[in-house]
Design a protein around this nucleic acid. Structure first.
Lengths: 341, 341
DNA sequence: GTTAGCACTCGATTGTTTGGAGTGCTAACA
DNA sequence: TGTTAGCACTCCAAACAATCGAGTGCTAAC
C-alpha cells in the first residue's frame, strides 16, 4: 500500500498532468505545490512509484506521466467529488433552456452540454421503453377510397397509416371491424403482437389482404418507434483540441468509429448495467478506443433504464469534472422526465 | 482570350494540381503529358498565364498553382462532363440498397454516398413542402379525463396531442366541438392558421382555455413538421484526409460551422434557386468557408424544390467527379421520389 | 530519511549545409 | 517570330550539427 506522501505526490502528478498534458518532473511538483520536501526526495518517491507501476517515463530525461494503473487508483481512491461552480451550473441551465421541445431535443442538448463542459466527445443513448400496450384502433375517414388507420396505445401515443379501403366497403363496416380487432388486441403489449396473433385477426375479421398488411405495418412501426434506441453524439470536433489527438490519423480512426451508430450503441449498451462506470485505456474491450478513457452514467426511472450517457476522451481526462457534470445533468434529466410522466 | 495551347496547358496544370495537391512545374507538364513542346515554352506560357491571373506562385522557386479565377474558367469552359465508371455506379447502387426505409434514411444515405464518393463533406437539405391543408379534427377517447386530439390534413397526415378534458364535459360535447372547429378551419392551409384566426375559434367554440392551447399546440407542431427542413451531413471526417486541412485549427473552425445546423441550412438555401451552382473560394459570401469551394445541385419534382445537395471542400476539388456523382444521385432520387408519390 | 551536488541523458530548439525542383533570362536556331 | 537549350539564380525541404535545458540517478553528507 502507498503511504500518505506517495499518494499525495501521485495525486499531484496526475492532476498536473491532466491539466498540462506535459510530463511532470520533480522540480515542478516541488515548486508548484508546497510540500516542504525537496525535489530530490520527490525524485526518490517518483522512482518508487515508477517501480510500482504507477508512473511511466516517455524517455530517460523527461518527467513522468501517470500509467493506466495510476488513473485507476486515482478514480478509485484519490478522486474528491468536486462540486460544479455556480458559473458552470448557470451555463448548463441556460443551455438547457435554449430549446427544449421534444424528448429527442433534450437528449441532443444533453450530449451537447456534456461535450462542451468536458471538452470531450459525448455520447447519449436514449432507451425508449417498450411497454406500450395496445388500446384500440380506429379509422379516420379521408376520402372515398382512403382512410387513416390510427392505433392508440395506453400511454396516449397514436400512430397512423393511410390505408386503401376495399371497394364497396362502407364506413360502418370499417368501424365495426376496428371495434372487433380492438377488442381482440386490447391490453396486449405491442411487442407481443406477433404475426401469429395477428393471423387470427386476419382470418376471422380483416378479410381484405391489403387492409391487413396496413394494420400489421402500423403495429410494427409503432413497435419499432417504441423500442428505438437513439444515439446522440456531441462535440466530435472537441477531439481536435486535445493534444493527444494531434495525430490526424488517430482522429480519423476514432471519428470513423463514432460515425458508426451501431458501434456506439453497442459500446454504450455494454456498460449500461452499473450506475457509474469508468473505463480506463485497455480496460475497454472495444478496438480502436483502447487508448482512451470513458466515463459512463446510466440513469433510471422507476428501475427502468431510461438512457445512458458517456464521455469519451484521452486517458488524461478531467475525471472529477466529468463526473460532476454528469451528476448534475443526471439530476436535471430526472426532474424533466418526472414532469413528462 | 486564351489560345488553344494556353487553354490546354492551363487545363493540365489544374488537373495535375487537383490530383496531386502539389504546385505544378513546367517540367512536370512536359514530362507527364506529351505536348510536343519543351519545358521552356511551357514556362513562357505559364508566365503569361500568371500575368493574366490564372496562376499563382506560392514562392519564387516553386511550381504554380491555379488561382480561383483559373478554377472558375475551368468549370465554365474546360470541364468535360465525365461519366461515372461502372464500378462507381455499382458502388452507389449497393450503398443505396443497404437500407432504404424512410425518406430521412434516403437523404442520409445520399449524404453518405456523396461524401464517400467525393472525399469531401456533403450536405443534403430535405425540403418538405408546406402545402398541407387542414381537413378535420377529432378526439379519440383515452380515459375519463384525457383524450387524444387528432388533426388530419389533406395529404393524409395526422398529428396528435393528449389533451385534458375539462371537468364535466361529455364525449358528445367534445365531438360536437370538434365538428364545429373542423367546419371553420377546413380547407385552410396549415401555415395560414394563425393565432388571429384561431382566436375566433377560441371565443366562439372552444371555451376551455387548456383545450384551446392544446389545439393551438398541435397545429403549430404539424406546421413545424411540415415545413421542416432537415439537414443531413456526411463525411465530416473526410476533411481530415485533404492536405489543405492539415492545419487542425482550420478543421476545427470548419467543423464548428458545420455543426450549426442553422448556418448550414442558410448556406444551402442561398444557392437553392439554380440547378447546378459552383461557388469557388471567395465567391461564397459566408464567412469561414471562403477558402473552400462548393458544388450544389437543387432537385425538383414538378417544379417544386424537393431538396438540395452540396459538396464542400477545398478549391482544389475534383469538380468533374463531384458533378457526375451528383448527377447520378439526382437521377436516382428522382426515380425514388416518383415511386413514393 | 532527507537533501545538496553533480554527471549524464535526451528531446526540443536553433542554425547551417546541401540538394533539387523550379524559374527567368539570354542567345541561338528554324 | 516563335521555340528551345543553356545557365545562373532562388528558395524550400531535408539532413545534419550544435546547443540548451529539463529532468534523472547516484553519491555523499547532514
Amino acid at each position: 500500500m502507498l503511504n500518505e506522501r506517495k499518494k499525495k505526490i501521485l495525486q499531484l502528478i496526475i492532476e498536473d498532468y491532466i491539466s498540462t498534458a506535459e510530463p511532470v518532473g520533480s522540480r515542478t511538483i516541488a515548486r508548484k505545490y508546497n510540500l516542504g520536501i525537496s525535489p530530490a526526495t520527490i525524485r526518490n518517491e517518483m522512482s518508487d512509484l515508477e517501480m510500482l507501476g504507477y508512473l511511466e517515463q516517455p524517455h530517460t530525461s523527461a518527467g513522468r506521466i501517470p500509467s493506466a494503473q495510476a488513473y485507476r487508483f486515482y478514480v478509485d481512491s484519490l478522486l474528491e467529488p468536486g462540486a460544479l461552480t455556480d458559473n458552470d451550473m448557470a451555463l448548463i441551465n441556460s443551455w438547457f433552456r435554449e430549446r427544449r421541445r421534444s424528448i429527442d431535443e433534450i437528449f441532443q442538448s444533453t450530449a451537447k452540454i456534456l461535450s462542451r463542459m468536458t471538452q470531450n466527445v459525448s455520447m447519449v443513448l436514449a432507451n425508449k421503453s417498450d411497454t406500450a400496450v395496445f388500446r384500440y384502433m380506429k379509422f379516420l375517414p379521408l376520402d372515398d377510397r382512403h382512410a387513416i388507420l390510427c392505433i392508440v396505445t395506453d400511454d396516449g401515443n397514436v400512430d397512423n397509416c393511410v390505408v386503401e379501403i376495399p371497394l364497396g366497403m362502407r364506413p360502418e363496416e370499417l368501424d365495426y371491424m376496428a371495434g372487433r380487432v380492438s377488442r381482440l388486441l386490447e391490453g396486449k403489449p405491442l411487442s407481443s403482437i406477433s404475426e401469429t396473433l395477428l393471423s387470427a385477426v386476419h382470418t376471422d375479421i380483416v378479410e381484405d389482404k391489403l387492409l391487413f398488411t396496413s394494420l400489421l405495418n402500423t403495429i410494427n412501426k409503432m413497435n419499432r418507434k417504441h423500442q428505438q434506441q437513439r444515439v446522440f453524439l456531441g462535440g466530435t470536433k472537441q477531439l481536435l483540441s486535445q493534444p493527444e489527438f494531434r495525430d490526424m490519423d488517430r482522429v480519423r480512426d476514432l471519428l470513423g468509429i463514432l460515425e458508426e451508430e451501431k458501434v456506439v450503441r453497442d459500446l454504450l449498451l455494454a456498460g449500461e448495467d452499473s450506475g457509474l462506470k469508468i473505463t480506463i485505456g485497455s480496460e475497454n474491450k472495444f478496438t480502436g478506443i483502447q487508448d482512451c478513457s470513458m466515463v459512463q452514467a446510466t440513469y433510471r426511472l422507476n428501475g427502468q433504464v431510461v438512457g445512458t450517457m458517456a464521455v469519451l476522451g484521452p486517458t488524461r481526462m478531467e475525471y472529477s469534472k466529468v463526473i460532476s457534470v454528469m451528476d448534475y445533468l443526471h439530476k436535471y434529466l430526472k426532474t424533466i422526465f418526472q414532469q413528462e410522466k
